[in-house]
């Protein structure tokens, strides 16, 4: 019998809000699945769509992109720029056939430790349900070699 599927999830978050929210989930000892790997960025404005593609190339079954709520950006309006990019890239990914459950976007403030824990649980559950991103994995396999470090 094969092992149950455990998805690989990569989260790109800004250090001021969502990263701090994830820390708060920790200090509050909230529990969530261990599938998520967090990449810390100074601001959502720094989160390039390329990161999402590279996470998928590394076999991620799901990606989360998250930062400060509109109006809360430490850099005043980095997240407003990010929101426009996300709108466009999200639509592009879906048009290319990447299911919307696989790439999610959220606002999580430094006070929303609970929202972070719940969202990670929810996303992990969603992706467990729809299974591994086999179509993408097939493309990775076709490249023949793992990408160089």
């Amino acid at each position: 019998m094969s092992e149950p599927f455990e998805p690989k999830i990569v989260a790109f978050v800004c250090t001021y809000c969502t990263y701090a929210g994830a820390d708060l989930a920790g200090t509050s000892r909230l529990k969530y699945p261990s599938n998520v790997r967090i990449v810390r960025l100074p601001c959502t404005g720094r989160i390039s769509p390329m990161f999402i593609l590279k996470a998928l190339q590394k076999g991620a079954d799901g990606v989360l992109v998250s930062g400060c709520h509109p109006g809360d950006c430490h850099f005043d309006h980095g997240n407003y720029h990010a929101r426009r990019r996300w709108t466009v890239f999200n639509s592009l990914l879906q048009f290319a056939g990447v299911p919307e459950e696989r790439v999610r976007f959220s606002w999580i403030s430094a006070a929303e430790g609970r929202k972070f824990a719940e969202l990670i649980s929810e996303i992990t559950e969603d992706i467990r349900r729809i299974g591994p991103f086999e179509q993408y994995h097939a493309l990775i396999a076709e490249t023949g070699s793992p990408a160089p470090l």
Partner: peptide
């Protein structure tokens, strides 16, 4: 960060 975002939030030692 293996405390706030790892040991404190995951129960299974192998996974953590």
């Amino acid at each position: 960060n293996i405390r706030e975002q790892c040991s404190w939030v995951h129960e299974n030692p192998d996974e953590a």
